[in-house]
């Protein structure tokens, strides 16, 4: 099996445990897992669950960085654990904790219903004056038009950006990076005319103006969505709108 002689045989993981039926606060528990060059943190967690402690709870599914289930804090940084290689954290111990700023449900599982409410509020669907009948074919959209919003459509809802955003930590009402990026994804789509409808929530009290441009959301995003960029761009739009409505009150419908 390859050349593994020199590598450490095991690696230590310090993992958050929280069992609400038994304890009122989370604790850290350490486990040993075998070290393998091609293992990711998630493989080690699965090893623990399968062989050592069946009661450790965490979410995962695709193991290829696309379903967005497996986000956790690894050594203090939000990561997809299926894309965080053990080899990058040697010699250990590796600290694995639930995503920061979210309520902990159990062990490494956090509650994200809050995001789902926010997502629905920004109307992440194509808004049109009227639907064109299918018989008339597709809406034309050139590759250049596609390119304008493509980046913001790549969000896998993994919540790493929220876990990196201190503003979200301090102001849980903040709509937050991914939801704003997704709103912007539709605003910039040539098939959509819903920007006006999204304006109230986006530039309202919990919207873009909460953001003071920490920029961490973009740094941790595993899919290069650049939510910070989305927010900044939207601030320009929002500001333009505000000026228009103040200076030309009759100019607004």
């Amino acid at each position: 099996m390859g050349s593994r002689e020199k590598l450490p045989p095991t690696v230590t993981l310090a993992v958050t445990r929280y069992r609400p039926e038994e304890e009122s606060e989370p604790t850290l528990q350490t486990y040993e897992a075998p070290y393998r060059k091609d293992w990711v943190v998630l493989d080690a967690l699965n090893y623990i669950k399968d062989k050592v402690d069946g009661s450790l709870s965490f979410r995962w599914s695709c193991r290829m960085g696309v379903c967005g289930s497996c986000g956790m804090m690894v050594n203090g940084e939000p990561k997809l654990t299926c894309a965080a290689f053990l080899s990058d954290y040697l010699p250990g111990p590796i600290r694995v904790e639930p995503l920061q700023f979210f309520p902990i449900v159990r062990d490494l599982v956090v509650d994200m219903t809050d995001f789902l409410h926010k997502l629905k509020k920004v109307k992440p669907w194509v808004v049109r004056e009227e639907e064109r009948p299918l018989s008339e074919g597709e809406y034309r959209q050139t590759p250049e038009q596609l390119d304008i919003y493509k980046q913001f459509s790549m969000c896998i809802n993994c919540m790493l950006c929220y876990a990196a955003c201190p503003i979200y930590g301090l102001e849980p009402g903040f709509v937050g990076p991914a939801a704003i990026a997704l709103a912007q994804r539709y605003n910039l789509d040539s098939r959509d005319i819903g920007a006006q409808e999204r304006l109230d929530i986006l530039s309202g009290k919990d919207g873009i103006w909460e953001c003071t441009f920490v920029g961490e959301c973009t740094k941790v995003c595993p899919k290069n969505v650049d939510p910070a960029g989305a927010i900044q761009q939207y601030k320009l739009t929002g500001a333009a709108h505000w000026f228009k409505s103040v200076l030309l009150p009759w100019g607004r419908k």
Binding site: Y18, P20, E21, S24, E25, P26, Q100, F101, P103, I104, V105, D111, P166, G169, L170
Partner: peptide
């Protein structure tokens, strides 16, 4: 009933 642990910042 969920008994979430909320961390204060």
């Amino acid at each position: 009933h969920p008994q979430w642990y909320r961390r204060r910042v």
